[in-house]
Design a protein around this nucleic acid. Sequence first.
RNA 1: GGCGGUGUAGCUCAGCUGGUUAGAGCAUACGGCUCAUAUCCGUAAUGUCCGGGGUUCAAGUCCCUGCACCGCCA
Length: 506
Amino acid sequence: MKPAFYLTTPIYYVNDVPHIGHAYTTVAADVLARYKRLMGYDVYFLTGSDEHGQKVEKAATTAGETPLELADRVVKRFQALWERLGISNNDFIRTTQERHKKGVAHIFKDILEKGDIYLGEYEDWYCTPCETFWTETQLIDGRCPDCNRPVEKLKEESYFFRMSKYQDQLLAHIESHPDFIQPKSKRNEIISFVKEGLRDLSISRTTFTWGIPVPDNDRHVIYVWFDALTNYITALGYPEATDDYKRFWPVNVHLIGKDILRFHAVYWPTFLMAAGLPLPEKVFAHGWWTIEGQKMSKSLQNVVEPNMLIDKYGVDAVRYFLLREVPFGLDGDFSHASLVQRINSDLANDLGNLLSRSTAMAVKYFNGILPAPAVLNESDLALKRRTEEMIATVDGCLNDMAFSKALQAIWEVISAGNKYIDESAPWTLAKDPALKERLATVMYCLLESQRIVHIILSAFLPATAEKALDSLGCGEERSLVGMAWGGLREGTTITKAEALFPRIEG
RNA sequence: GGCGGUGUAGCUCAGCUGGUUAGAGCAUACGGCUCAUAUCCGUAAUGUCCGGGGUUCAAGUCCCUGCACCGCCA
């Protein structure tokens, strides 16, 4: 039986339209999912939408539609974008779905019955747009410290989650599981946050109705984060002990942006502890993108619309850029200049041109019929070795979410391929019929190395790898097994590859 | 204010437990090849490794201190 691998993106809030940040998390998750499938895992890749809450309710009212209508509309935009980006999620959960609502009500009731949810009273300053309560000391000049808008004093009956009870247990878990929260810098932040003490958490609201009602008390709606986080198990069928649930929970990794780390590294694990469920194996918080050196914001009107990027540069170029430019976990800057630079230098000159020149020679010297290699000499073996070593390196990198490093390792092999051509000088070999066998060996090694490169690249650049493998005459052997050296068969028809990535001039 | 982090070539960054002439990619200059998307290969140059002090036979790497920037919390 295949090993299981479960990974998630956050569910995206429908009050916001998709931007480069959403695309980033989702593309990263997709690469990991595709890679794990390649390695023989049975992968459950979940994304979805978060649709409840006061903000959505208000936005819908303003737009003259029901909250669900608004959600339907925005969800389509997310789904259409994922389609365009080649996202291979096998499930898409919406918090308005029955399966989810049922599960949330169940876990709420369960924790209530176990005594870790209790009814109390909440009084504090409330910022409606942010849906956040602030203490007196947190306010800045009497305004919301996040958005600087006015806040109002609010007193409401509220259900509380006894988060304080789990402080020590959570801390112990974090400390005994060094990889639970990554990267390390974020882990430190969470540790110090927990050490400062966890307060009980208000997890219901009475000021609006667009949400999942508290079981047996429908004056209350369940707090959006309690609702949203639970998606990770309701998608698998919780509370039923479904096959998916048994097979995939606990999740291998939650990929998230650094802004929502606390919810995933503190709230969510303590909810699970209270419910007696196993904790996620890993929560990985990636960084943020600035745009041409500036913080991305609606008011600056510099929000990057992924569809526009795809139109202009193509899907795989965008996927490549997002994962290559910046180490996952750190902030990075998006600029058109650096994207064009990556496309021209890495994708066109290195990757694309290598395939182009290699396949052109195969056609020219062997009529496109791949010859069998003779005995490999030192430089052939060096290329083979580098290619094989790269597979292990990439595996290590991807287990650490080091997408950028993984791509660098792949590019070292591409670079080695270009150098190999230069050193072997096939055009010289071709002039002497006596060297035909040597030429055959060189062509074989060259193409075989690239076949392996493109199989592994199919996780990152699915459409590109498809084209490349087609031109290398490779059929369906696109898996871990197919990664072994020697998979390219003698007699395979090689066709001259079109430019995978045309250079962008100007 | 408390805690944590960062400061290395023009740019983005690697440099683990201290040890030969401090590295990579991109950009720059020069040279080479011609199979290829004017692509590829090679060579070169540039660094007070933030400042100051200290430990050590030896510090970009450890300690102290100052400055600058960033994150989390308050």
